[in-house]
């Protein structure tokens, strides 16, 4: 690893930390946005349920969150609790700390996102290459049409449409991750197959938008590369078309695709959130929706914060990846 690369990474890291800091500010602003502080709402809700909240508890919560203090102090309490104690606040909807809610749901959510991500790249890159190499063929037109439709249809519509189709064809809407009765069954081949069956629609829906846009990018990049002079030079020297295509063109065309990992994450998180709500999946998206409908802002805000941080991390990784793949990128960046 050379010095150039290290400098590049360090500078990117510094901007990343600054961005995360700004993001945390925005998130805290959103958390405090609903009128009246959450404690008043909480006390109101408890009173509605017929439970009195002891004055000591109120005083303690007030002190803990610094509610009678200015915005900046409240912000400091919130962020320092997260950074030093891993405490994201308290969810009044589920009556437990936000941290435990997140712990309970983060694994399925991340698995779903990751599987979708792999699926997205595995499908879109080959299709993009195919479309570029066979430009204006029937296959290219077909994929272009699918791509346009996939980018245009909102996620939740796609979810409902697929549920509808699945119901018409098989009589089952494939809601949830398991069929009724399977959820608590011991792990077996049958349960695994059931899970796989139920994952098809979510993965399709979450991945579709991203797959389509990646497919378009890959196609465009590949077309650019194929028209360049080095391709003709290599042809003139007698290299086989296939060798040029896969050894040089694909490698060069991959760069912008690699740099889009961060933004792909944004798409995928959006997708997972909505699909979880529509298809009733046990993931963070559904919890966030319920929390928002109830203005349980600590829970919703924390999840928003985590998604944004993961996106920034994804962008950071893809920047490093690009710098590693393409030396031009890092020298241009360092030059300014």
């Amino acid at each position: 690893m050379n010095k150039n690369f290290l400098m590049f990474a360090l500078r990117k890291l510094a901007t990343m930390i600054l961005t995360v800091f700004l993001i945390s500010f925005v998130v805290f602003f959103i958390i405090t946005l609903p009128p009246g502080d959450f404690l008043t709402n909480y006390i109101g809700r408890m009173a509605e349920a017929g439970e009195a909240v002891s004055p000591e508890l109120i005083a303690e919560l007030k002190a803990h969150y610094g509610l009678d203090q200015p915005f900046v102090v409240q912000y400091w309490k919130w962020i320092s609790n997260i950074v030093f104690h891993g405490d994201f606040g308290y969810s009044f909807l589920l009556s437990m700390p936000v941290t435990s809610v997140i712990k309970a749901y983060i694994v399925p959510t991340m698995v779903l996102s990751l599987v979708t991500m792999i699926f997205t790249y595995a499908i879109s890159i080959p299709i993009g290459i195919y479309s570029a190499v066979h430009q204006y063929s029937v296959g290219d037109y077909l994929f272009t049409t699918i791509g346009f439709i996939g980018m245009a249809v909102p996620n939740f519509l796609m979810g409902i449409i697929l549920m509808f189709i699945s119901f018409k064809l098989t009589g089952n809407t494939m809601l949830g991750l398991y069929s009724p009765g399977m959820e608590n069954a011991a792990w077996s081949m049958a349960k695994f197959i059931d899970l796989m069956k139920h994952s098809v629609i979510p993965i399709l829906v979450i991945g579709l938008m991203n797959t389509c846009s990646l497919m378009r990018t890959m196609r465009g990049q590949m077309l650019d590369e194929l028209g360049k002079n080095y391709v003709m030079a290599a042809r003139a020297k007698g290299l086989k078309a296939k060798a040029i295509r896969y050894k040089y063109c694909v490698r060069a065309a991959m760069n912008p695709v690699a740099s889009s990992i961060g933004w792909s994450l944004v798409n995928i998180f959006t997708g997972t959130t909505i699909v979880a709500i529509v298809l009733n999946l046990p993931s963070m998206g559904r919890v966030m929706h319920e929390a928002l409908l109830d203005q349980d802002m600590y829970l919703a805000g924390s999840w928003l914060f985590l998604m944004a941080i993961m996106t920034v991390l994804g962008t950071f990784i893809s920047d490093l990846l690009l710098a590693w793949l393409d030396p031009r990128a890092r020298s241009e960046y360092l030059k300014g």
């Binding site: 901007t15 993001i23 959103i30 933004w263 944004v266 919703a300 928003l304 996106t311």
Partner: peptide, 18 residues
């Protein structure tokens, strides 16, 4: 960069829920 780091729809959701 900050605005683009948030997934669109969840951020929309959070703001309108408020």
């Amino acid at each position: 960069e900050v605005v683009r780091s948030f997934p669109n729809v969840p951020l929309w959701m959070a703001l309108s829920a408020a």
